[in-house]
Structures are given as C-alpha cells and as structure tokens.
C-alpha cells in the first residue's frame, strides 16, 4: 500500500502581523511550520504505516526553502519526499496549484490513499485538496476526523459535520482531507533528523511535468482568481449573556432581540 501526503509550508500565524499600508502579511521574521492540518495528515498516514506496513511519500509544492518541511516529515517517519518546484508554477491560485499537484501525483503513481490537510492557515481556502481529488477523478471525503478501518480496497472514515458526523465507506484510491482532530502529530526523533538529511529529495519541475501541463494552465496565467485585497479580521462585539430570568422571560427577550435586528 502506498500513501501520499500533501503538505504545505506556511508562516506560523499564531503571532501574525499585517502591514497596515499594503494589507499583506508581514512574512519577515515569521517562523515557518508545516500547516497544522497537513501535519495531522502525516500522523494519520504514519499510524496506517505502523498498522499495514504502507510506504509514505510526502509531497509539497513551493519554493526550494520548503525543503525544511519535507525533512521534518521524513524525520517524523515518512519514507520519501518530493518537492514540486519551478519558476513557472509561481503565482498559481488554488485551481492552477491543484492541477500541478494532480499532474505530479500521476507522475509519481496513484497511491491507494491520498491525504491533504483541510486547509492551510495562510490562505484558508480549503479548495486545493478537493480540487486535486476532482482532477484525479477519485472519490474524496473532506473534514476527516477519524480513520476507522483500512483495507486494500476501501476505508471507513468519520467525517466531521456541522451538527454531527458522517461515517463513510469509501473505495480506494481515494482522497481524504484531514482536520486537526484526526491525529496529534508525533515529534520528530533525533535519529530521524539525521536520516532525513541523508535522504535525497526528489524535485519535480516544469520539465518533468510538462507532458501533463500546458503553460496557460499554470502560474498567474492559469489562475482564474486573484487576491483583490487582504485585511485583518475585525473583532466582533462580544455576545450578550442573558441570566437570572425564567425560561419564558428568556424566550421573550431573545425573540425581541431577533425582531429588533430584523432577523424575523
């Protein structure tokens, strides 16, 4: 069994600052990390590896510096690492990016299980994973919070939903998008880091993927969307807590408020 985990290197946005003039993220001095949902995906893959002896390829698209994220994944226990990187890929939006990653996965050979994070903390689109699945024509389950059963031809997974969850049986090959609840990532090990830097990272550039990609499908040219403006979130006013009232009074107070706001 082969598993591919797609990861993205992102700025650690715990203490993020926005340039008030340009509205852009100030990336300077921000430490970079593996996107948290993706890291949960790595852990889930490692758990399957321990259970089934599967091999794990970890794949990232980004500049050469994304190498560190791949080394970290290797140091956690992934077997091979692939960096998708080329000047031609720069400026790609989610649509172009998913096309490039799908081409890379076809090149690497379709795995039984393909895992991506639900969304990256720098862009928050949650689009790339599902788009990869669509472009590879494989079934997918997003928001996976538990993998309950793994066999060669199907998986049973639990999908988080707004007001509950779904238990889904899905045929392999398939794509799962992982949420943080899926697994608590393990630490790297000291020996894992030594080995990670002794391994070679395979690089797939435009040359390697060009049979499967047109120049007008990638980069800025192949991107139907553009970021128009980014801005820090405005804090919402705090909610009101109603207390020391009977149930009837509470209902009346809520109804009055909803009417006042023209909700009903």
């Amino acid at each position: 069994m082969k598993i591919i985990v797609c990861i993205k290197q992102v700025p650690d946005t715990v203490d993020v600052k926005i340039d008030p003039k340009t509205g852009n993220l100030i990336r300077e001095g921000l430490p970079v990390i593996i996107n948290p949902d993706d890291k949960a995906g790595i852990e889930a893959a490692l758990a399957i590896k321990e259970q089934t002896g599967a091999t794990i390829q970890v794949v990232s698209m980004g500049p050469p510096q994304a190498d560190v994220a791949l080394r970290e994944a290797l140091a956690m226990g992934c077997d091979e690492a692939v960096l998708i990187s080329a000047r031609e890929f720069g400026g790609s939006d989610t649509y172009a990016t998913s096309g490039i990653i799908a081409a890379a996965i076809r090149k690497l050979g379709m795995p039984e299980i393909l895992i991506t994070g639900r969304q990256a903390i720098d862009g928050d689109t949650a689009q790339v994973g599902p788009q990869i699945g669509e472009k590879l024509h494989i079934p997918q389950v997003s928001y996976v919070e538990e993998i309950q059963e793994v066999t060669a031809d199907h998986l049973i997974v639990k999908r988080q939903f707004e007001d509950g969850y779904h238990i889904i049986k899905i045929k392999t090959p398939c794509l799962l998008t992982a949420i943080g609840e899926l697994a608590k990532p393990r630490y790297m090990t000291v020996s894992g880091i030594v080995e990670a830097y002794n391994k070679e990272i395979k690089v797939l550039g435009f040359e390697e993927l060009k049979d499967d990609l047109e120049l007008d499908m990638i980069g800025t040219k192949g991107s139907p969307t553009n970021v128009y403006q980014s801005f820090p979130k405005q804090l919402k006013a705090p909610g009101t807590v109603l207390k020391d009232m009977s149930d009837d009074e509470l209902v009346a107070a809520i109804m009055a408020k909803l009417e006042e706001k023209h909700v009903i």
Binding site: R186, Y187, M188, T189, V190, S191, G192, I193, V194
Partner: peptide, 23 residues
Amino acid sequence: QKCHFFGIPYSKEYGGAGADVLT
C-alpha cells in the same frame, strides 16, 4: 526515549541516533 534523546552522539551501530556532540 521515544524521541531518541538518550543516544544522541552515539553510533547507529549500537542503536544510537548518529548525531554529533554539537547536537
């Protein structure tokens, strides 16, 4: 132990992590 902290500068031949003294 899980992270292999107890054998940092020792050879893999004896189950060490194979890192250096500086590490």
